[in-house]
Design a protein around this nucleic acid. Structure first.
Lengths: 238, 238
DNA sequence: CTAAACTGGAGCGATAATCGCACCTGAAGT
DNA sequence: ACTTCAGGTGCGATTATCGCTCCAGTTTAG
């Protein structure tokens, strides 16, 4: 393992680590910037946001637009295009298809917003969110939300099941015993969450299902619903 | 308007039109290839699929992986990553958030799969799909599905409302009178669909809502449900 | 049990693509 | 009328990319 210094480090004092392909990385930075501003951005605004030059942004936007990843509105703003949804539809279709129906049943039974979250590095991303019918007050938990795995019931449920955490919070060992995790106000003020790990028959644990509500729910009852939903999903996975 | 010939046309006999940035385009081609193969692909397979060289694919994958758009499984296969869902979550969040609840109500009332589709060029993409609870047989209509606007009720509803079609099918003018479109077996054998255009208070019509079922539903009743759902969504849009 | 095939990965030079600048046009806003 | 800000193009210098080669582990095949 000759830990040779990378030969391709350019003279640019990049803030982040060096990425393999600069042009592709610039394109992705544009996409990220647009994701942070759903209302849309102009080329000049994007240039500021990404620290690229306006003309470079313009040309990259051309490619992105031709591929449908970006669309130009009637005015002079660009925003993410529908092809993004198309591509995202191919992310773990098996897991999402399997969880769809059980998740909606869970949302109804618990009368709360139900979610499926997946571990991605040291963060979790909500891959599926289902709100119950006739929800009085709904928790704003958008699909695609990303946050640290150590914050919120969704991430804690996965971490505790993996038991691969070095500095274990009391909550984590406790959760491993119970089979579910609870969080209160960690992600959102006043939000109460309860989640359980999804255990596929083969392979590692990487997902969890749970519910969020604006106040604490009946813990034993909710836990039973969430845990059985997680088991139902896990048993249908490879 | 000096229609000068583009100076940057490379000597490559590209099948499709020239794209602005070659490297970025190659990266997007990798994403598209991965979307077509949700099970994942190896670098060599990707090289074949995208007509790029293996080492180039390898380096682009490095960038994509670092950004989370691609993840590498335990084995040697790559697949689309969760950041894709994160980005897709920022695509027209207003429209999707507005339609979420009415759409689920529609699915329940009609006892059929309900969808929200958006026009993208001359194609439509399903942006939201909701299946009813206790569905006996569900229509496999995945989110992110893309198909020609002239095929299926979703696209026809938008086209007829726009009335910008040159070669108008009888179905289209008919639909404009009725306020909704019907299709039978156009997208899927045995699938019956009914959709109505979503008219925002300002701006162009670009979306439609509807239902799909495996057999024909009660047309008057379903049409009333779909049309009123479309109106409810449109009225809540800017 | 060996050989072939394939994967991740690094080095390197030629080439081609990108970058940054200057410049132009048109639409708004003042 | 003047300024501002948008999209858009041309061009040359630079540099990032490409394609090749080579290497070391792992599977897979024979």
């Amino acid at each position: 393992m000759p830990s040779t210094a990378p030969a391709h480090i350019s003279a640019s004092p990049s803030v982040e680590g060096a990425a393999g392909s600069k042009t592709l990385d610039n394109g992705i930075r544009i996409l990220s910037a647009l994701a942070r501003h759903p209302h849309g951005l102009t080329t000049t605004q994007l240039a500021h946001e990404t620290a690229l030059h306006r003309t470079g942004v313009y040309r990259l936007l051309g490619t992105l637009t031709r591929r449908g990843l970006v669309t130009q509105r009637a005015d002079t703003r660009y925003q993410l295009g529908l092809t993004m949804i198309e591509l995202a539809g191919a992310v773990r279709p098996d897991l999402r298809a399997t969880a769809q129906v059980p998740l909606r049943d869970l949302a109804e039974a618990a009368a709360a917003t139900a979610f499926l979250s997946v571990l991605d590095g040291d963060e979790v991303v909500s891959a599926l969110v289902v709100e119950p019918l006739h929800a009085d007050a709904h928790v704003a938990y958008r699909i695609g939300t990303r946050h640290p795995a150590t914050v919120g019931s969704a991430g804690l449920a996965i971490l505790s099941a993996r038991a691969a955490v070095t500095g274990e919070r009391a909550e984590i060992t406790e959760a491993r015993r119970r089979g579910y995790s609870i969080s209160e106000g960690e992600l959102q003020r006043g939000a109460w969450g309860l989640a359980a790990p999804v255990r596929p028959r083969t392979g590692e644990i990487e997902a969890s299902v749970g519910v969020v509500a604006l106040g604490a729910l009946d813990e034993p009852r909710t836990a039973q619903l969430v845990v059985s939903t997680a088991a139902a999903i896990g048993n249908r996975l490879p």
